[in-house]
């Protein structure tokens, strides 16, 4: 299997898997029951999409889908740094979600036209979920940004903290460039135009300010991760590490 194609699918899978795992940490800790379950639903949507990609890889490589999330170490993960950042408070989680959703939705929209039939099919299925996620996180961004003085301040802090991770999603790695040339993956510059327009629109409505001249934090897509991913994996992979090859 082409290494570039594999890395591209892993990036899609790991983005969804790691953010899904992060959101799952809210399960039982949401501010109210209704939002707790809403966020858990989103986590399950993302893990479901990740499974589709892992299953696709597993079918090509004659492996098990669990091998990918459970038996790889940090440096082999291809998720963007944004997805592994800690939850902090509710508003912080929703800003991270909103920035991710802006990439996720428009990336899926473009990937429906992929020449790879499986990726196109996964995108067609997942975009319905992503559309809801984007509406949900966008509305929360507006609600809290344009809320009380305290909520506004927390949202602005979250935006300042997380905006440096935004650009990584749209900076093409070597494997994405290769996949784009083969018409498997979207033109990231076009995806970015749509995503940034959406971010700008919502941030303005939320009475927040986009930080300018931020340093771009990147590396996750090529396996250079922040300190957080290792801790996440030790949690997520605990059973396989403690009891190798155990099954349900």
């Amino acid at each position: 299997m082409d290494k570039n194609f594999k890395d591209f699918i892993l990036m899609l899978a790991d983005n969804n898997m790691i953010l899904g795992q992060r959101l799952s940490e809210w399960c039982g800790h949401g501010p109210v029951l209704e939002q707790d379950i809403a966020l858990t639903n989103i986590a399950l949507d993302l893990i479901g999409e990740a499974r589709n990609y892992y299953q696709y890889l597993a079918s090509i490589e004659q492996k098990e889908e669990d091998d990918y999330p459970m038996l790889r170490d940090v440096i082999e993960f291809r998720n963007v740094l944004l997805t592994e950042q800690p939850n902090h408070n509710w508003g912080h989680t929703l800003v991270r979600q909103f920035l991710f959703d802006c990439w996720h939705y428009y990336h899926l929209e473009a990937m429906i036209k992929s020449k790879d039939a499986t990726l196109s099919a996964i995108a067609s299925k997942s975009i319905k979920e992503a559309r809801y996620h984007l509406a949900f996180s966008g509305e929360w961004t507006v609600r809290l940004g344009d809320g009380t003085e305290e909520s506004h301040e927390k949202m602005q802090t979250a935006l300042n903290d997380l905006m440096p991770f935004f650009d990584e999603m749209f900076e093409s790695t070597a494997y994405e460039t290769s996949c784009f040339q083969n018409q498997f993956s979207p033109d990231l510059s076009v995806v970015k135009q749509h995503a940034l327009a959406k971010v700008t629109e919502v941030i303005e409505e939320a009475t927040l300010k986009l930080p300018v001249n931020t340093f771009i934090r990147k590396g996750g897509k090529t396996g250079i991760h922040s300190e957080y991913l290792g801790h996440m994996l030790s949690d997520m992979q605990f059973l396989q590490r403690a009891y190798p090859n155990s099954v349900w």
């Binding site: 029951l33 939002q35 379950i37």
Partner: peptide, 13 residues
């Protein structure tokens, strides 16, 4: 509006 979203998540999953 939020009630509809919450209902979607709580009662139609």
């Amino acid at each position: 509006h939020m009630a509809i979203q919450n209902a979607r998540d709580v009662y139609t999953r």
